[in-house]
């Protein structure tokens, strides 16, 4: 009788340790957005009109055989202003940055770039979000680091920071 109860209690405690661990583990998991999917895959050869010349260009026309950064931005996006100085800093380290202007008014976009300096090699216009979807993006700002073989090395959601800059600089 007591043995049976003891056994029950023991198995109960064991079971709850397992369940506890399960919930405990889930607490510390990355939940929000999952940027892992695109990493390591081929950068799609995005194609669109550019902001200044109004002619259709694709990524491979702009860069070849070198690492580069793709940055999705919009003039109405507040965090984009925060990361702008870092983009300028990247540009000054001779990194090519391709801007994707996400659902924006072209006048506002140009004004935005003039006001805060232009870090972009070229700006592709993404009028309906289609380019962003090809990149697997969730919103603005988002930034991708691509190596010379057009493979996506890193993806950053939200305004980029110095860690991201380090990743860019360290990449061959």
């Amino acid at each position: 009788m007591y043995l049976k109860k003891g056994f029950k209690i023991l198995s109960l405690i064991l079971a709850s340790i397992i369940i506890f661990y399960f919930f405990y583990y889930s607490l510390f998991q990355e939940k929000k957005l999952n940027p892992k999917v695109m990493i390591g895959s081929q950068m799609p050869n995005l194609q669109s009109k550019t902001l200044y010349k109004n002619k259709v260009l694709s990524l491979s026309n702009i860069v070849s055989n070198e690492k580069f950064v793709v940055n999705i931005f919009a003039s109405w996006c507040v965090p984009c202003k925060i990361e702008h100085p870092i983009l300028i800093q990247l540009k000054n380290s001779k990194i090519k940055i391709i801007g994707i202007n996400y659902k924006d008014n072209q006048k506002n976009a140009k004004a935005f770039i003039e006001k805060y300096q232009n870090p972009f090699e070229k700006v592709l216009i993404d009028s309906d979000g289609a380019l962003s979807i090809q990149l697997g993006a969730f919103g603005v700002p988002e930034t991708f680091l691509v190596d010379k073989n057009f493979t996506i090395i890193a993806k950053h959601i939200g305004p980029i920071d110095n860690n991201f800059v380090k990743k860019v600089i360290n990449l061959k």
Binding site: I9, L12, S16, Y24
Partner: peptide, 21 residues
């Protein structure tokens, strides 16, 4: 979250043990 989780397990486990006993 860890704290709440511990509370849940303390309450549930001790209740179940009382139930068994």
């Amino acid at each position: 979250g860890v704290f709440i989780l511990m509370i849940i397990f303390i309450i549930t486990l001790s209740s179940l043990i009382i139930h068994i006993l």
